[in-house]
């Protein structure tokens, strides 16, 4: 049976940019232009979870992204790897939201989409790392959810999920429609094929404005926040690494052992 899936994908600054380029200026994270936006890592895992289901049972994948100033080539990656449709909630009113306003807007968009069996989210966004929006959407829509999924199978109106727990995993069964929060064990997102890239180039994302999802601007973005960001800062850390050198690498390694004994660390 084909499965209707929605994947929530966020555009974020590359989380793997070298730590030294992350600079807070006037309470805002300010990154140099060479740090490119990407789709968040856990959303890539969520996309892969959906694609795996489409591989086996067939179905439709709609990617939904909320934000402003989307870079089309970046955000259309979901289409290039195999999503069928991309909906952008794109407006300046969506900017600087918190988990509350983001989940509310995404849930409103999902209600408008209407038909879905499984909604996939990542375990946490790759910028604010909150880990809330997926569960918030599930609460608003009144559907069951499972977190930290590393394997998902769908059949007969049910999902069977492997949920990672600290010392192993659980197999959980839940009725659809459901929301599934995906973690990294699902496997890396596949590469886009040339065919996929060409097909994506031809597709245009659907853009929805606040009015399209029936939400007042006062409920959105910065205006709709329930938690106030009072301060963003970077604790200063002093680094002084003693580099141990030697004629050869093996000698350096031996010297490290001696040095650690001297300092009574080992």
């Amino acid at each position: 049976m084909p499965v209707n899936m929605i994947v929530c994908c966020k555009q974020v600054p590359d989380p793997e940019a070298p730590p030294a380029v992350f600079k807070v200026v006037n309470n805002k994270m300010t990154l140099p232009p060479e740090v490119k936006p990407v789709i968040g890592q856990y959303e890539e895992f969520a996309l892969e979870a959906a694609l795996k289901i489409k591989d086996t049972g067939g179905g439709k994948i709609t990617a939904v992204s909320l934000g402003n100033n989307f870079v089309r080539d970046v955000i259309k990656k979901s289409l290039a790897v195999g999503a069928d449709e991309l909906i952008l909630l794109e407006d300046s009113a969506f900017e600087d939201g918190d988990s509350w306003s983001t989940a509310n807007a995404l849930a409103a968009a999902i209600k408008k989409i209407g038909t879905y069996d499984v909604i996939f989210c990542g375990r946490q966004s790759s910028d604010w790392d909150a880990g809330q929006v997926g569960l918030g959407i599930a609460e608003i829509l009144g559907i069951p959810a499972v977190t930290l999924a590393r394997k998902v199978e769908v059949s007969d109106g049910k999902a069977k999920v492997e949920r990672v727990i600290p010392d192993g995993y659980q197999v959980i069964e839940l009725t659809l429609p459901a929301l599934i929060v995906v973690t990294s064990g699902i496997g890396a997102l596949r590469y886009a094929t040339l065919k996929g890239i060409m097909a994506a180039a031809k597709k245009q994302p659907v853009v929805w404005k606040p009015a399209d999802i029936g939400l007042e601007p006062s409920k959105l973005g910065a205006a709709g926040r329930r938690s106030k960001l009072d301060k963003l800062f970077q604790p200063v850390k002093e680094s002084k690494c003693e580099m141990i050198e030697g004629e050869t690498v093996a000698e350096a390694a031996a010297k490290l052992a001696v040095r650690l004994r001297e300092t009574k660390l080992l």
């Binding site: 690494c241 003693e242 141990i244 050198e245 093996a250 390694a253 490290l256 052992a257 080992l266």
Partner: peptide, 27 residues
């Protein structure tokens, strides 16, 4: 290396066995 207190630059295949064997001897 910005987080570490001590560092060695090299391939682990060379560094770790040499480190382990010296440490064994010292211990």
């Amino acid at each position: 290396f910005r987080e570490a207190e001590f560092g060695v630059v090299g391939k682990y295949e060379e560094v770790v066995p040499a480190f382990t064997s010296k440490l064994k001897e010292l211990l």
